[in-house]
């Protein structure tokens, strides 16, 4: 069980200095077990702060965060936070920057060993993770620094998956990848969510990804959680998006224009594939 609950969470950086920044105000939200949640919001809206709180990397100034049975508050001890971290995998932006071991396999098994697995167990987990992200076995003994950018990204992601997290936090995981790399990475996470029942939390600027993969979307604006709802509720309302300095997904834009031209969409399409399917159906039924 890994339901997540934010209760009245506030967070400020550098409390008590003239440089204090109040980054989050009174966050209340529930993220249910095995969901796929996307967090969207403009630059500096507090997305990264929110997920760092969730992983116990920083403590809330006030309020509590419940992860399963554990609670994070301003007084949580390091060992309590460590316990929560062992359940959570965190893929940071440009995660290839965290690689440091001599071989790919050693780097991937680093996490599991820190969380108490023996070396042998960790290597088994590492090999599983390599398979999961589509890294060939022949790369296991190579130095991670000799790999291409896309491969390094996979090694870093495998290093997180090897910890067998119940919750996977992703901070813009596809930045800098080419289109195929982006597609494959997003599909990997979607598959982990569906097949391995991992609770995925995705921070992204790509509204298309949020619309296509998530089943819950949180909208942040200036440290406030302004909206939480299904992608349908969030993305079928362009005014709401613009008001929060967000872009409108391409699919939404096209769907809106098509609606003006006489097409009807139900349910509201969140991917181009779905949009095309409904368009095709209407064109066919018209011609019959």
């Amino acid at each position: 069980m890994s339901t997540i609950e934010f209760n009245g969470v506030n967070f400020s950086y550098q409390v008590g200095t003239p440089f204090e920044v109040n980054a989050l105000h009174d966050i209340n939200v529930r993220i249910s077990d095995r969901s796929y949640t996307a967090i969207v919001g403009h630059t500096g809206s507090g997305k990264s702060t929110l997920i760092q709180l969730l992983d116990g990397l920083i403590r809330p100034t006030t309020g509590t965060i419940k992860v399963g049975n554990e609670t994070i508050s301003s007084t949580s001890s390091n060992s309590e936070l460590g316990k929560i971290r062992s359940k959570i995998g965190f893929v940071f932006q440009f995660p290839e920057n965290q690689l440091f071991e001599e071989t790919v396999l050693k780097d991937i098994s680093f996490g599991p060993q820190n969380f108490g697995k023996s070396e042998d167990e960790a290597i088994v987990l590492a090999k599983e993770a390599m398979q999961l992200v589509g890294l060939d076995d022949s790369l296991a003994q190579r130095s991670p620094f000799e790999l291409s950018g896309g491969q390094m990204r996979r090694v870093a992601i495998a290093g997180v998956l090897a910890m067998k997290p119940e919750i996977l936090i992703l901070d813009e995981p596809t930045a800098g990848l080419d289109p195929r790399g982006q597609r494959e990475t997003m599909q990997l996470f979607s598959q982990l969510h569906r097949k391995n029942n991992i609770n995925v939390i995705l921070v992204t600027h790509q509204m298309e990804d949020a619309a296509a993969f998530a089943n819950q979307v949180l909208v942040m604006n200036d440290g406030n959680l302004v909206k939480a709802g299904s992608p349908n509720e969030i993305f079928s309302n362009p005014e709401g998006l613009i008001g929060n300095h967000l872009t409108i997904p391409k699919t939404t834009k096209v769907a809106n224009e098509l609606t003006k031209g006489g097409f009807r969409f139900d349910p509201y399409p969140l991917t181009l594939e779905e949009l095309s399917r409904q368009v095709a159906k209407q064109l066919e039924s018209g011609s019959n």
Partner: peptide, 8 residues
């Protein structure tokens, strides 16, 4: 979009 709307 225009083309589709014409078709419809």
């Amino acid at each position: 979009v225009n083309w589709l709307c014409q078709q419809l």
